[in-house]
Write a protein that binds this DNA or RNA. Structure first.
Lengths: 328, 328
DNA sequence: TTGAAAGCGCTAACAT
DNA sequence: ATGTTAGCGCTTTCAA
């Protein structure tokens, strides 16, 4: 910028005025400045700008588990969109379900002075965020609540969805219903397991621990877990799968086993309706979650000081066929 | 930081030393400083740090079309991973195939002083990047080459893959082979169309323009285009779909029409092997593309001044069933 | 309409 | 082992 000023034979401040369209500059002068800018290939340094202005970086930080999972990429997209409409950029990072990596990422993002954070938490204790919160950092949690702190959180109705899915299978006459779920320290896995258990108990059946397989975090693990369920002496006639990875693993296992098993999954996924037996699922909108979280964050950044909100987004059971298979 | 210095009764520089683990500080003093840091909830300001050090921001910019598309989310993930291993963060944005938005994004990223850019270009003229390139900005293009400038580019073998797919359909005895492709100004759509045309001509059949439908950018458009092909008086007996969106659209249309049509798609996709007729595809690795692009970018940032490289990644035809359907 | 000077939060270079 | 000074590139404030 100094170089531009020199080249245009004006002061620093005049260049600044031109660059930022502040007005109060003669057209003739402005033209000279623009020429110098073009000649030197000048680009305003936003870092310096932000530093001086004291306002933060017009950047949001996004911490998710893994962008390559369609659930999170849908959230990402919605967050980016909402952020862009308010003039924010998004720095995103994947925690891979590792609390240490999550903390690292968050620290780095705070040091970069993002104005706000959108987090799908992996860890169970977020007190390390307290100082940042007090310093005015805005944080909204998505999909899972934070640990040991109060903060805005957007969740979905996990218990209700799981209960509905299980009840639906019960309604078809199934009594032995297995469940394949994610790692047992993950909030959604626990809640969905609760919903499943509630429905089973309400039906007077109760939970047979042999039929519940938590700990399947990827498709392969879910396939393995499902295969084991199907290989039991008295195998389940129906399976409730706790998320999109679990459902696809269960699908692969039932296909491989060649057995006739009913299946309802949590989370919708592309092509669910095109499979040879279309898959019944509990749907919800990850895009809505991302959008609402981003909007809430922006409200906070705009000065909303109301107490932390906890939102539960609705889910819906979609019958496509796989959940309507009746027991033999 | 000044506050911390005051609270710990030391100088600014001593705090800086402690914060950055520079050593040369008595343990006792360091302890006092750490205490003050904790008490005040101090976080080093990376903006100021970067500004002072002159080195850029340890941040890379990523411009893709849409994170919600699995092809791009796979790239994103690989880029993030590679970047992280080298100590970089990634700011990502979706251009939505809009050149103006692409340019906006790139300008903003440059103003933020990202050290390098990874771009899946939407526009056809990238001369606007020349000043930044001269100022030392490193840029690697992915999936499509830049327009009117020389820069590192990682591509895949579009022509070869399309030729192989088409040849495979010809080998099954098909003569009327339709093609559904993306917008005709997109590089990969053009190259894949070329590969298709080459194979058709080499077989002595040539291209029947009625059977070629470009312009399908999303699943709905591809479904519509395929439906129209199937409704022709003399419909194709086989279809080559130009990308993952096109393939899924084609799949939906053939399913809806209930006709028996062979199908080979470009890009692999999850569940392709689980459909009632498993889908034959031309596979390649978007993750490899992202990884290699990020690695090349890091090499450039480390000072590699060799002339711009153009890499072509291999593709492979995977036979799963849908491509092996023979004409009636 | 234009410019000069001070300072955002930090670190490099040089004291002490 | 610790402190002082200057300055990164910009904007704010005040003056001309």
């Amino acid at each position: 910028m100094r170089d531009v000023a020199q080249a245009a034979a004006v002061s620093l401040k005049t260049v600044s005025r031109v660059v930022n369209d502040e007005g109060g500059v003669r057209e003739e002068t402005a033209a000279r400045v623009h020429q110098a800018i073009a000649a030197l290939g000048f680009r305003r340094n936003d870092m310096a700008r932000v530093l001086r202005q004291g306002r933060s970086s017009r950047t949001l930080g996004l911490v998710i588990e893994d962008v390559a999972n369609p659930f999170y990429s849908a959230i990402s997209r919605a967050v980016e969109e909402a952020a862009r409409s308010k003039g924010y950029l998004v720095i995103a990072g994947s925690s891979d379900e590792d609390p240490e990596r999550e903390r690292d990422l968050i620290r780095t993002l705070c040091e970069r002075r993002v104005e706000g954070l959108l987090i799908v938490p992996a860890g169970i204790d977020h007190r390390f965020l307290l100082p940042d919160l007090h310093m005015g950092m805005a944080v909204v949690f998505m999909d899972r609540p934070p640990g040991n702190i109060e903060a805005d959180t957007i969740l979905i109705d996990n218990v209700g969805g799981a209960r509905q899915a299980t009840q639906h299978l019960l309604d078809q006459g199934h009594r032995r219903i297995g469940m394949v779920g994610d790692l047992p320290h993950i909030f959604t896995a626990v809640e969905r397991c609760e919903g499943y258990a509630e429905a089973m108990k309400a039906a007077g059946i109760g939970v047979d621990e042999l039929l519940v397989r938590l700990g399947a975090h990827d498709v392969e693990a879910a396939e393995q877990a499902t295969s084991e369920l199907l290989a039991l002496p008295d195998p389940p006639t129906a399976i409730f799968a706790g998320n999109n990875r679990n459902t696809i693993g269960a699908l692969r296992a039932t296909r491989a086993a060649g057995t006739r098993v009913a299946l309802v999954g949590f989370d919708d996924f592309e092509l669910a309706d095109l499979l040879s037996t279309p898959v019944s699922v509990v749907t919800h909108s990850p895009a809505d979650m991302g959008r609402q979280a981003a909007q809430l964050l922006c409200q906070r950044l705009a000065g909303d000081k109301a107490p932390p909100r906890r939102v539960r987004l609705p889910v819906e059971l979609v019958r496509r066929g796989s959940g309507e298979v009746v027991p033999l």
